[in-house]
Amino acid sequence: MSLPLHVKGSPRALPSTEASFLWRKLSEHRTALWRTASIGLFFLVWEIAGRVPISFAFPTFLETLRAFLTMLFNGAFVAAYAQTLQPLVIGIAISAVVGVGVGIVMGLSRFAEWLVAPVFIVLQAAPMAALIPLITFVYGIGLMAKTLAVIMLALPVIALNGYKAVRNANPSLVAMCVSFQGTRWQRITKIIIPDASPVIFAGLRLGLAAGFIGVILAELLITPTGIGDLITYHRSVADYPEMYAAVVSIILVSTLTLAALEAFELRVLRPEKRRT
C-alpha cells in the first residue's frame, strides 16, 4: 500500500498515513492474526457444540479448559508425563541411533539395501499396532514393553528416511567431491551425510510422531499408566472434562515438540530455507 507522494506532510494526510501505518502493522502480523482467528473459531465452535450439547459425553470448551488448568496446577499432568515420557524418550533414542545408522548403511551399500530395505518398507506400510498384544505377554506390562511399542512404530520411518536421504544425495555434489579427489570417507562425511541430514532429521521428526502414537497405544492397550491412565480413569468415572483435557494435553505436547524440532531443523540444517 503506497500513498501518493505529494500528500505527505500536509495536515490532511495525517489520518490517512495513520491508517496506512495501522494497515502495515496489521499485515506484518497477518499470520499471527489468522492463527488467533483460527484457534478462536475452533474453540468457539467447540463451546457451542458443548452447550447444545451434541452428546452427554461432550463437555464445553470452558469446562475442559478449567479441568486442564486444574490438572496442570495440581500436579496430575506432571506425574502422568513423568511416566509417559520415559518409554517415549528411551524408545526414540534407541530408534534414532539404530534407525539412522541402519538407514545410512542401506543408503551406502547396495547389498544392505537389497537385504534390509524391503523389511522396513513392509514394516512402515503395515499396521504394526497389531503386534502390540504380542509384546505384552513376552515383556509383560512394564517399561520394556512400552519402549518396544515405541520402537516398533518409530524405527521403520526413521530408517527409511535415512536410507532415502543417503541414496538420493545430490549426485552432482558427489561428482564434485570425486573430481577434487575426495576419498570415500570424505565423500561420506563431507558431502553425503551433510546433504542427507535435513531429510534424516525430518525422519526423526516423523519417528517421534509415530512414537507418540505408540506410547499412547501402549498405555491404553497394555496397562493404563501416565497419560493413558488419566484418560482411562476419568472415562471410567465419567469425568469427561478431565478426560478431554488429558487428550488435549497429549496432542498439545506432541504438536509443540514437533514444532520445536521443525524450527530447529529450519534454523540449523537448512540455511537455504532460512528467511534472512
Binding site: 545430490n170 552432482s172 555434489l173 561428482a175 564434485m176 573430481s179 558431502i191 551433510p194 546433504d195 541430514s197 540444517l269 537448512r270 540455511p271 537455504e272
Partner: peptide
C-alpha cells in the same frame, strides 16, 4: 571441473 549446475554445497 566446473559444473553445469554449480554443485555448490548449500550448507
Amino acid at each position: 571441473f566446473v559444473f553445469q549446475d554449480f554443485a555448490l554445497m548449500p550448507w
